[in-house]
Design a protein around this nucleic acid. Structure first.
Lengths: 357, 357
DNA sequence: CGCTGGCACTCATCTTAGTGGAGTGCTAAA
DNA sequence: TTTAGCACTCCACTAAGATGAGTGCCAGCG
């Protein structure tokens, strides 16, 4: 068992101080009021007088773990305080069984994966009473199953491709010359034979490579097909996106009821790109990732915490989901809950993806 | 020129009272403060003393056109007051030329119609500093151009159809038996020959009729095709939807800065169906439609006004757009602006729809 | 040396009272 | 019908006092 924890460089905290910090954070999370020495003294089974607690608090304050809103208020955890709490003091609570059944039930009803993403987001917000967010599976990481071309008019061709998750995507491209339906069919057959099963990202790279190196070895038909593939899988096609629900839940929290903060937060939500960037970072982390308050480095989120977990399809991380709430949130329940939701969403998506084509 | 207006049953207002009401509303809209008799007396060129104005105000209050927030405050327009103002007193201001150029320029850049809807919504919110909303073109009213089937697996068939606005839609259906690609091609050819050019709604009805009446006269192939069409154009497919932008602009208005109101408003936005119902009503009206405050009958909008206009493609109303803001908005500018935006969006969409296939 | 009790002090919050200003309603007179 | 005048109401702002929670510090105790 850990009895001492170093903070910063050389500072050391003993077990008692940590326990008090833990109680303080827990109490503040449940009450929302600055916690005074009296309250801590009564709550703890340490049998310490308020005066002693005050001494400890002074130490914690020196270390930047807690902070007084004003002279005669109790203490409130700082970001570092929360961080220490989350990293080393937290007693994880198992996901409540009623939440678990709701998750299972919710994720089993939906038909296609886009629906599932929406359902997951709604479950996250509903069961936590905060905002839920789920990124759409990264297209680059998703496997190509099948591609098809459809002639719309002379040079306008509709590209349809089905991915791993049974998602159907389409895009209109403009070809350099006119193709007959038969030619298009041939091209599709060729592309399917060589590219299907690979991730979109891999396909994109392979296309570029093939165009550079193997050009002389290919027939005109093959070349045309690959050129069309290039247009079809062109990079900056559709931006990454996410499904955010329950934003309005955030309006209930007093720490966010300041209109200016709320406004910039909601603006960030509709701007999307900043949030996407943040979620991208979370995806790299693989597993549960937590940003507390200003840790995210994104001003709009200064008074929020973000708890995320990446989710995977066939052992490949394809997206990330999580909840957004005030820094003062019940981490011990939210963390396992987010983790579980990610696992279940991954499993549900996986089931679709391995279903017979 | 109108010199008298009847309100309610028998009450009559003379020109002077109307002019004063007009000034009061205009002043309140620009200032946001209750308007007192002194201010009106000075502003008007009627050379009336404040006392006289007060008598007129008392009349207006009796008629329910204005109202005092408290004993010693000025007057504020009521919903009926606004309504009278908007219906008969308003001096429409032409759309500012800089707004006009922004609209033209914005609506000319986008490629496909879905983009265009988004751009229109953003323009509405940006140029009015309120929230902009645009419904997606009603699918039932949009014409079918082309339909195609693509076999995914044994009984799962991907239906692709292109509509008037160059929009591509797709849907997965489950057929009762397995079809070969050739059979699917035949079915598509058949459906295209008899249904293309009609509105989706018309197609849906025709399909049902054909299945009931002409069944004996059809070959098995034709029958299969029509049955697939029935699945493809099944009613409750994708619900009507809208693009709402600039919601955060609404947070700036003091009349909406009450957290409870704001919350229910934003909940209404994400619930969508209530708003859709409201917008549907607006669509029936053809032309500019205005809901002031509680007029909408939708509690969440109690403190908002909604100014909408339907937009048309090839002389057929297909959707509606508008702005949402506080009841205290500059109607004389917003009304022509919304009207203009609707016309320009319709024109822009029309251009796409008549482009060569 | 760590812990505790006591005391002075600070600060937010709440209540109360007082003041000024804006604007009304009413009435009597032009 | 319009106007001037006056009493009245109510909001918004400020100041002052009371209350209570909680701290910091210090001296004493085990």
């Amino acid at each position: 068992m850990v009895t001492e924890v170093s903070v910063g460089n050389t500072q050391v905290l003993n077990e008692r101080s940590l326990q008090l910090l833990k109680m303080l954070v827990e109490r503040y999370i449940s009450d929302g009021q600055p916690v005074g020495s009296r309250a801590l003294s009564k709550d703890s089974d340490l049998n310490l007088s308020p005066a002693t607690i005050r001494n400890v608090m002074a130490d914690l304050e020196d270390l930047g773990l807690v902070h007084s809103p004003h002279t005669s208020a109790g203490r409130v955890p700082t970001v570092s305080g929360y961080r220490l709490f989350v990293d080393t003091l937290l007693t994880i609570k198992p996901v409540e069984s009623k939440d678990l059944t709701r998750l299972h039930q919710g994720l089993s009803v939906s038909e296609d994966s886009a629906d599932m993403i929406g359902v997951a987001s709604r479950l996250l917000s509903e069961l936590t009473q905060m905002a839920g967010v789920v990124t759409l599976p990264k297209r680059e990481l998703v496997c190509l199953r099948h591609i098809e071309f459809l002639s719309l008019s002379h040079t306008r061709v509709l590209v349809i491709f089905v991915t791993n998750e049974q998602e159907v995507h389409n895009k209109i491209i403009h070809t350099s010359k006119v193709f007959s339906p038969a030619e298009l069919q041939q091209a599709a057959n060729y592309l399917n034979s060589i590219y299907s099963g690979r991730s979109l990202d891999a396909v994109r790279k392979a296309v570029i490579k093939d165009l550079q190196k193997d050009q002389e070895r290919m027939s005109q038909g093959m070349l045309d097909a690959v050129k069309m593939a290039q247009l079809a899988f062109d990079q900056d096609d559709k931006k990454d996106d996410y499904v955010l629900t329950g934003e309005t839940n955030l309006m209930g929290f007093s720490e966010l009821s300041n209109m200016d903060r709320l406004k910039s937060l909601f603006e960030a939500f509709s701007q999307k790109q900043g949030v996407i960037h943040l979620l991208d970072q979370c995806m790299k982390a693989e597993g549960v990732q937590i940003f507390i308050g200003e840790e995210s480095g994104y001003r709009a989120f200064d008074h929020c915490s973000l708890v995320t977990s990446s989710y995977s399809v066939s052992d490949e991380v394809v997206g990330v989901l999580g909840v957004i709430g005030p820094t003062r949130m019940a981490y011990e329940k939210i963390i396992p809950f987010v983790d579980m939701t990610a696992k279940l969403l991954g499993a549900a998506l996986n089931q679709k993806s391995t279903a017979p084509l």
